[in-house]
């Protein structure tokens, strides 16, 4: 198979690697997968973790290796620079988050927007806690429908 074919097969496989803490999203749409290169000595994969201490990264690395096992040798690099940003989350992934009851990041880093309740879409929300169940989320409550929800922090 040629390099382009191997690359697209690898990416298709990587779309099956889900983030264990946001299981509705795969690592491609979450923006964790930064590079896929096909070299003579095998596949070179670069991943960028969301937060420095993200405990999900070990599982993601193991799962990445597992799904790519039949594509030959894989060298995997964890790159911290440039740092991960929620701007890398795709539109499709933002819809999936909302459908799962998690508010996607409000806008882009350079252009923040009002936080919207993932249930009733109202913008009248208040932050309950800047820190949530995982490093990437904060806790909010909707002033319109009264429901609590999690928000992916804009970062």
């Amino acid at each position: 198979m040629n390099a382009a074919g191997t690359r697209s097969r690898a990416i298709a496989k990587l779309r099956t690697v889900m983030d264990p803490e946001l299981p509705m999203l795969n690592i491609v749409e979450l923006g964790l997968l930064r590079e896929v290169e096909v070299e003579e000595d095998g596949l070179h994969i670069t991943l960028t973790p969301t937060y420095s201490g993200c405990p999900a990264i070990e599982t993601i690395v193991a799962e990445t290796r597992r799904v790519l096992a039949d594509l030959g040798p894989v060298s995997l690099r964890i790159a911290h620079a440039p740092p991960w940003t929620t701007d890398w989350i795709t539109e499709d992934a933002r819809r999936k988050l909302r459908a799962a009851g998690i508010a996607p990041p409000a806008g882009r880093v350079a252009q923040p927007e009002a936080v919207r309740c993932p249930r009733c879409d109202a913008t009248a929300s208040e932050q309950v806690s800047a820190f949530g169940s995982t490093a990437c989320k904060s806790l909010w409550r909707c002033a319109n429908c009264d429901e609590p929800f999690e928000l992916l922090k804009l970062i």
Partner: peptide, 20 residues
Amino acid sequence: LEEELALANIALDLIGQAQM
């Protein structure tokens, strides 16, 4: 509860930074 989450999250960030 919120502080339980906050302090654990900050701890995790700092330990992750230490590892790097």
